[in-house]
């Protein structure tokens, strides 16, 4: 087993709102090995972004607050670090890129400066030297005529180009972990795969780890070796990529997979309707005594509504939070 670069242990993040406490992240544990790409999957509002933001201490506070748990990066507990020490981790050891390249770049600052900034802060080099390195990185993320782009502003670039700039900005200090929060969701499909292969190439070159947050299982299939599925603030399944697609255990994961449109299912004469998961995510404000997925689960039985299941191992490398682990369908393929 390789050494883990990032380990999140029992993390809970609460949002204090006038309506009550929202448990956005509820006892989440996950780990990423050195050089690994981990996919973090779930529908919007399931807590995947909040989990990633809390790694760098970036959850908007108030109302958000890390309630309990530990986040170890390279053996050090990020939560016990002071703001100043954490600041030196941000952008240097751990970088982030965000979903909206339109709004994630500052509209009034030139691109070159924004890309060069982490270098000036963390490596304490002159603006000139930082800009020169920024040009190299813009070149590496395949932005044409990078010297000219340095002085341009975000609104002069296309969405794909902006995301490339974001990647260059995240990479300049050669981080050991890159957190990509829905990096391709806002982009055209044709640009999506370019951006993904760019990130994959950079990961391969630099040996960094990648935490890829997405709701798109297609993206996960292309990038990740291991996948964590979240639902309503909890991890419901952890699996290797192959296991996830071939024998998903948790009914929620199964539902997610069934809701992907499949090319050719019509031609094969099946004429199946696309399956959606019925119902909606429960409010994070109401404490649920049983399984949080119970109301939407096609396999629900009595115990599901009474007690919450724990995350249990199913086979090597696969875990699920479901009462089924305790009962009949423990082995074999679940249809």
């Amino acid at each position: 087993m390789e050494e883990n670069l990032l380990e999140i242990e029992d993390l809970s993040v609460h949002f204090h709102t006038p309506e009550g406490i929202g448990r956005a992240v509820d006892h989440v544990s996950l780990s990423i090995a050195k050089g690994e790409t981990l996919g973090l999957v779930g529908e919007s509002g399931c807590g995947k972004s909040v989990t990633s933001l809390s790694i760098l201490g970036l959850i908007p506070s108030p109302p958000g607050r890390i309630h309990s748990g530990h986040i170890y990066f390279d053996g050090k507990d990020l939560r016990s670090m002071g703001e100043n020490a954490l600041r030196h981790v941000r952008g240097r050891d751990i970088s982030m890129i965000f979903q909206e390249p339109m709004t994630s770049l500052n509209p009034v600052l030139p691109i070159g400066r924004q890309v060069a900034e982490p270098l000036m802060v963390h490596h304490r080099i002159s603006r000139q030297a930082a800009l020169e390195e920024a040009v190299q990185w813009l070149n590496r993320v395949k932005i044409p005529a990078p010297e000219k782009r340095l002085h341009e502003y975000p609104h002069q670039l296309s969405g794909g180009m902006r995301q490339r700039v974001m990647i260059a900005m995240a990479m300049v200090c050669r981080p050991r972990l890159l957190i990509a929060d829905e990096p391709t969701t806002a982009l055209d499909v044709s640009i999506q795969s370019q951006i993904l292969s760019l990130m994959e190439g950079l990961r391969h070159e630099t040996g960094m780890s990648l935490l890829l947050i997405t709701h798109d299982l297609g993206v996960v299939a292309q990038m990740a070796k291991r996948v964590v599925v979240m639902y309503a603030g909890q991890v419901v399944e952890v699996a290797g990529l192959q296991d996830l697609f071939e024998r998903p255990f948790h009914p929620y994961t199964q539902g997610l997979l069934k809701s992907i449109p499949r090319l050719g299912s019509r031609a094969a004469g099946k004429k199946e309707r696309l399956k959606e998961i019925k119902g909606t995510v429960p409010s994070l404000l109401d404490p649920v005594s049983g399984c949080k997925f119970a109301d939407r689960c096609p396999r629900v039985f009595d115990v599901c509504r009474e007690r919450q299941p724990e995350l249990e191992a199913i086979r090597d490398g696969q875990q699920a939070r479901c009462w089924k682990t305790q009962f009949s369908e423990r082995s074999g393929r679940y249809a």
Binding site: R87, R90, T103, N106, M166
Partner: peptide
């Protein structure tokens, strides 16, 4: 705004986040 979060994620000092990235906007 998202770009203020980006500025923080880059590890900038709170001072530069507020007085450079936010104030100008």
């Amino acid at each position: 705004e998202d770009y203020v979060r980006t500025a923080r994620a880059k590890g900038l000092r709170e001072r530069s986040v507020v007085y450079v990235h936010a104030l100008k906007n």
